[in-house]
Design a binder for these strands. Structure first.
Length: 175
DNA sequence: GCCAACGTTGGC
DNA sequence: GCCAACGTTGGC
Protein backbone atom coordinates (compact mmCIF):
# COMPACT_ATOMS: atom_id res chain seq x y z
CA UNK A 1 0.00 0.00 0.00
CA UNK A 2 1.52 3.26 -1.14
CA UNK A 3 1.61 6.68 0.41
CA UNK A 4 3.70 9.78 -0.20
CA UNK A 5 6.14 10.57 2.61
CA UNK A 6 7.09 14.02 1.32
CA UNK A 7 4.88 17.07 1.59
CA UNK A 8 2.77 17.83 -1.45
CA UNK A 9 -0.08 20.28 -1.43
CA UNK A 10 -3.38 19.69 -3.14
CA UNK A 11 -6.14 22.26 -2.72
CA UNK A 12 -3.96 23.78 -0.02
CA UNK A 13 -3.90 20.53 1.93
CA UNK A 14 -0.76 18.52 2.56
CA UNK A 15 -1.27 14.94 1.38
CA UNK A 16 1.94 13.69 2.98
CA UNK A 17 1.73 10.46 4.92
CA UNK A 18 4.85 8.54 5.90
CA UNK A 19 5.48 5.48 8.00
CA UNK A 20 6.60 7.84 10.76
CA UNK A 21 3.25 9.59 10.58
CA UNK A 22 1.52 6.23 10.94
CA UNK A 23 3.85 5.30 13.77
CA UNK A 24 2.83 8.41 15.67
CA UNK A 25 -0.90 7.67 15.41
CA UNK A 26 -2.68 6.60 18.54
CA UNK A 27 -5.72 5.20 16.76
CA UNK A 28 -6.17 3.02 13.69
CA UNK A 29 -5.68 5.05 10.53
CA UNK A 30 -8.22 5.02 7.71
CA UNK A 31 -6.34 4.49 4.43
CA UNK A 32 -8.29 7.10 2.53
CA UNK A 33 -7.96 8.65 -0.89
CA UNK A 34 -7.75 5.49 -2.99
CA UNK A 35 -9.46 6.33 -6.28
CA UNK A 36 -8.79 3.41 -8.55
CA UNK A 37 -11.22 0.52 -8.68
CA UNK A 38 -8.61 -2.22 -8.77
CA UNK A 39 -6.89 -0.77 -5.70
CA UNK A 40 -10.22 -0.34 -3.93
CA UNK A 41 -11.19 -3.91 -4.70
CA UNK A 42 -7.99 -5.15 -3.14
CA UNK A 43 -8.87 -3.31 0.04
CA UNK A 44 -12.39 -4.75 0.00
CA UNK A 45 -10.85 -8.20 -0.06
CA UNK A 46 -8.67 -7.61 2.98
CA UNK A 47 -9.40 -9.26 6.32
CA UNK A 48 -8.70 -8.00 9.79
CA UNK A 49 -5.34 -9.44 10.82
CA UNK A 50 -3.87 -9.28 7.33
CA UNK A 51 -0.51 -7.57 7.07
CA UNK A 52 0.58 -5.06 4.45
CA UNK A 53 3.77 -3.37 3.38
CA UNK A 54 3.91 0.40 3.69
CA UNK A 55 5.47 1.70 0.47
CA UNK A 56 6.88 5.20 0.13
CA UNK A 57 6.11 6.59 -3.31
CA UNK A 58 6.66 9.79 -5.26
CA UNK A 59 9.70 10.65 -3.18
CA UNK A 60 13.47 10.73 -3.22
CA UNK A 61 13.95 7.11 -2.22
CA UNK A 62 10.88 5.09 -3.14
CA UNK A 63 10.59 1.65 -1.58
CA UNK A 64 9.13 -0.51 1.18
CA UNK A 65 9.42 1.28 4.51
CA UNK A 66 7.82 -1.23 6.86
CA UNK A 67 4.83 -3.30 7.87
CA UNK A 68 1.34 -2.53 9.08
CA UNK A 69 -1.70 -4.57 9.98
CA UNK A 70 -5.26 -4.31 8.77
CA UNK A 71 -7.24 -3.88 11.98
CA UNK A 72 -10.66 -3.07 10.50
CA UNK A 73 -12.20 -4.34 7.31
CA UNK A 74 -13.50 -2.02 4.62
CA UNK A 75 -15.96 0.78 5.17
CA UNK A 76 -16.93 3.94 3.33
CA UNK A 77 -14.16 6.40 2.47
CA UNK A 78 -15.99 9.54 3.53
CA UNK A 79 -13.25 11.80 2.17
CA UNK A 80 -14.98 11.36 -1.20
CA UNK A 81 -17.88 13.46 0.13
CA UNK A 82 -15.90 16.44 1.37
CA UNK A 83 -15.94 19.14 -1.32
CA UNK A 84 -12.81 21.21 -1.61
CA UNK A 85 -10.53 18.51 -0.22
CA UNK A 86 -8.02 16.53 -2.27
CA UNK A 87 -9.98 13.27 -2.44
CA UNK A 88 -13.39 14.73 -3.23
CA UNK A 89 -15.33 12.83 -5.87
CA UNK A 90 -18.55 14.57 -6.94
CA UNK A 91 -19.93 11.30 -8.26
CA UNK A 92 -19.83 9.71 -4.85
CA UNK A 93 -22.79 10.13 -2.54
CA UNK A 94 -24.39 8.56 0.49
CA UNK A 95 -26.68 6.57 -1.80
CA UNK A 96 -23.91 5.73 -4.23
CA UNK A 97 -20.82 4.94 -2.22
CA UNK A 98 -17.96 4.48 -4.65
CA UNK A 99 -14.87 4.41 -2.46
CA UNK A 100 -13.75 2.34 0.47
CA UNK A 101 -10.94 2.30 2.97
CA UNK A 102 -9.51 -0.08 5.52
CA UNK A 103 -8.07 0.84 8.89
CA UNK A 104 -4.43 0.04 9.52
CA UNK A 105 -2.02 0.13 12.45
CA UNK A 106 1.75 0.47 12.57
CA UNK A 107 3.67 -2.73 13.22
CA UNK A 108 7.25 -2.31 12.04
CA UNK A 109 9.55 0.22 10.44
CA UNK A 110 12.37 -1.48 8.60
CA UNK A 111 15.81 -0.50 9.91
CA UNK A 112 16.83 -0.25 6.25
CA UNK A 113 14.12 0.22 3.64
CA UNK A 114 13.98 -1.98 0.55
CA UNK A 115 14.39 0.42 -2.36
CA UNK A 116 12.55 0.24 -5.64
CA UNK A 117 15.80 -0.48 -7.49
CA UNK A 118 16.35 -3.54 -5.34
CA UNK A 119 12.74 -4.62 -5.78
CA UNK A 120 13.24 -4.49 -9.53
CA UNK A 121 16.41 -6.54 -9.27
CA UNK A 122 14.49 -9.15 -7.27
CA UNK A 123 11.75 -8.98 -9.89
CA UNK A 124 13.91 -10.10 -12.77
CA UNK A 125 13.08 -13.46 -14.39
CA UNK A 126 13.97 -16.24 -11.97
CA UNK A 127 14.00 -13.85 -9.01
CA UNK A 128 11.71 -14.15 -5.98
CA UNK A 129 9.57 -11.23 -7.11
CA UNK A 130 9.28 -12.11 -10.79
CA UNK A 131 5.49 -12.19 -10.59
CA UNK A 132 4.98 -9.41 -8.07
CA UNK A 133 1.90 -7.38 -8.87
CA UNK A 134 3.40 -4.11 -7.68
CA UNK A 135 6.18 -4.40 -10.23
CA UNK A 136 3.85 -5.37 -13.07
CA UNK A 137 1.24 -2.69 -12.39
CA UNK A 138 3.46 0.06 -11.12
CA UNK A 139 0.73 2.65 -10.86
CA UNK A 140 -1.65 0.69 -8.67
CA UNK A 141 -1.50 2.06 -5.15
CA UNK A 142 -2.83 -1.07 -3.46
CA UNK A 143 -1.77 -4.44 -4.80
CA UNK A 144 -1.51 -8.02 -3.73
CA UNK A 145 1.59 -9.65 -2.21
CA UNK A 146 1.82 -13.45 -2.35
CA UNK A 147 2.82 -15.47 0.72
CA UNK A 148 6.15 -16.31 -0.93
CA UNK A 149 6.85 -12.68 -1.81
CA UNK A 150 5.94 -11.64 1.72
CA UNK A 151 8.34 -14.14 3.24
CA UNK A 152 11.18 -13.28 0.86
CA UNK A 153 10.85 -9.55 1.46
CA UNK A 154 10.74 -9.86 5.23
CA UNK A 155 13.84 -12.04 5.16
CA UNK A 156 15.61 -9.50 2.98
CA UNK A 157 14.63 -6.70 5.35
CA UNK A 158 15.94 -8.72 8.31
CA UNK A 159 19.18 -9.39 6.46
CA UNK A 160 19.67 -5.73 5.60
CA UNK A 161 19.08 -4.74 9.23
CA UNK A 162 21.60 -7.32 10.40
CA UNK A 163 24.22 -6.15 7.91
CA UNK A 164 23.73 -2.60 9.10
CA UNK A 165 23.89 -3.66 12.74
CA UNK A 166 20.44 -2.20 13.35
CA UNK A 167 17.07 -3.38 14.60
CA UNK A 168 13.67 -2.74 13.05
CA UNK A 169 11.54 -0.31 15.01
CA UNK A 170 8.64 -2.31 16.38
CA UNK A 171 6.85 0.08 18.69
CA UNK A 172 4.66 3.09 18.22
CA UNK A 173 6.13 6.51 18.71
CA UNK A 174 5.15 7.82 22.10
CA UNK A 175 4.75 11.54 22.43
C1' DG B 1 -18.94 -2.72 -26.04
C1' DC B 2 -15.15 -0.41 -28.58
C1' DC B 3 -11.70 2.76 -28.35
C1' DA B 4 -9.92 7.67 -28.65
C1' DA B 5 -9.18 11.25 -25.67
C1' DC B 6 -8.18 12.52 -21.35
C1' DG B 7 -6.41 12.39 -16.56
C1' DT B 8 -3.39 10.50 -13.03
C1' DT B 9 0.51 8.14 -11.06
C1' DG B 10 4.96 8.09 -9.90
C1' DG B 11 9.90 7.37 -11.30
C1' DC B 12 13.44 9.98 -12.88
C1' DG C 1 8.99 19.39 -14.34
C1' DC C 2 8.77 15.76 -17.86
C1' DC C 3 6.52 12.09 -19.65
C1' DA C 4 5.54 6.88 -20.13
C1' DA C 5 2.26 3.84 -18.71
C1' DC C 6 -2.10 2.90 -17.94
C1' DG C 7 -6.79 3.56 -15.78
C1' DT C 8 -11.20 6.00 -16.71
C1' DT C 9 -14.68 8.36 -19.34
C1' DG C 10 -17.90 9.07 -22.74
C1' DG C 11 -19.32 9.29 -27.68
C1' DC C 12 -20.87 6.36 -30.95
Amino acid sequence: MKAEPESRFENGIDVRFSIDDLRAREKPEGWDGIRAYAARNHMRNMNAGDKAFFYHSNCKEPGIAGVMEIVKEFSEDKSARRPGTPYYDPQSSKDNIRWSLVHVEFRKKFAVPIGLKELRELGKPGGPLENMMMLKQGRLSVSRVSAEEWKALNEIADEKAKEAGLKHEMTKLVK
